[in-house]
């Protein structure tokens, strides 16, 4: 909530005047008061620790061992029962945390990076009168990528690069960057006429240095929120691609477990389905809450909406 004083001030000095107090301290203190956001942070941290445990070989290592019977119920040996092949569902669910973070981090980091760079370039070279070829072609590329039905495109990329373990990641990175790109472009167009940018141009810094050292750090609030949203989108898309048979290879993921379960549930075996759904839901909820809290903390104008 804005105080009456801030309201009057914001009328006198609209928007930009408050940029100076957009410091880290204020963001963090706002984040700390956001209970839902903290819950999100806790959930994400727990899952991150879990995935590190898998990465270092402490957890979930028995995911592919088929030492149980088909569809065993819960027991001391197999905490959440076994699947069709007699593999331990608990182990598989835990191991999948690592898969989820691999996909989520790779896709969200790279797509955000790509969006930041191309968006900043487009915004920098935008002349408002139109006609600059850099801005024009980046905009055109975004328009083209957004006009192709998403799943069809991802499926086609994943299929064209089939057999290559990163096909799915590439498909998602190539499509996910456009949203970040548009937002960064708009923000760069806004800040490129501000004092610090003009002065760095005046002292003759080369464009890449200005963009990377001075302009992009000021879009960090967009990048953080977009990255956490891309993480959610990546994991959700992995589920769909796994169901369509284009997902991870030689590994296990919650999407693969759900795809397996589509046949099992009709025969009344729900352990695979419930376990994977639960893990997936909690992690996505955590990331969504975190993304919301970040958005609120960074962007008071949006937050008051």
């Amino acid at each position: 909530m804005k105080t009456p004083q801030a309201l009057t001030l914001s009328r006198v000095f609209p928007a930009n005047a408050f940029e100076s107090d957009k410091g880290r301290g204020r963001v963090w203190s706002k984040l700390r008061r956001d209970k839902a956001g903290l819950l999100g942070l806790v959930i994400v941290t727990v899952f991150l620790l879990l995935s590190l445990g898998v990465l270092f070989g402490w957890l979930g290592q028995g995911w592919s061992i088929a030492d149980g019977g088909r569809w065993e119920p819960m027991s001391v040996n197999h905490w959440l029962g076994t699947n069709l092949l007699g593999q331990d569902i608990f182990q598989r669910a835990v191991f999948s945390t690592r898969t989820a973070f691999e996909i989520g981090l790779a896709v969200s980091l790279l797509s955000t990076l790509l969006g930041a760079l191309l968006g900043a370039l487009a915004g920098w070279y935008n002349t408002k009168l139109g006609g600059n070829w850099v801005d024009g072609s980046i905009l055109w590329l975004m328009g083209v990528l957004d006009s192709i039905p998403f799943y069809l495109f991802v499926a086609a990329v994943a299929y064209a690069l089939q057999g290559w373990p990163w096909a799915m990641h590439v498909a998602m990175i190539v499509t996910f960057w456009t949203t970040t790109g548009r937002l960064v472009r708009a923000e760069v167009m806004r800040i490129k006429s501000r004092g610090f940018v003009l002065s760095s141009r005046a002292i003759g810094l080369p464009v890449p240095v200005i963009l990377i050292r001075h302009v992009l750090p000021n879009t960090l609030h967009i990048l953080l929120v977009q990255a956490s949203m891309a993480f959610v989108a990546a994991i959700k898309t992995e589920v769909i691609l796994s169901f369509l048979g284009l997902g991870v290879q030689d590994s296990v993921s919650w999407g693969m477990m759900l795809a397996e379960s589509t046949q099992e549930v009709l025969a009344g075996h729900f352990n695979n389905f419930l376990t994977a759904s639960f893990m997936l839901f909690i992690l996505l909820l955590g990331f969504n809450l975190l993304a919301d809290a970040l958005q609120d903390a960074f962007d008071p104008r949006q937050a008051s909406l």
């Binding site: 795809a259 389905f273 969504n288």
Partner: peptide, 21 residues
């Protein structure tokens, strides 16, 4: 936010089990 955190596939499987089996 809860709805946004549930995968499409989970919703489909869940509804199928609850309504058609």
């Amino acid at each position: 936010v809860t709805g946004m955190s549930i995968s499409f596939l989970i919703i489909i499987i869940g509804l199928q089990v609850l309504l058609s089996t």
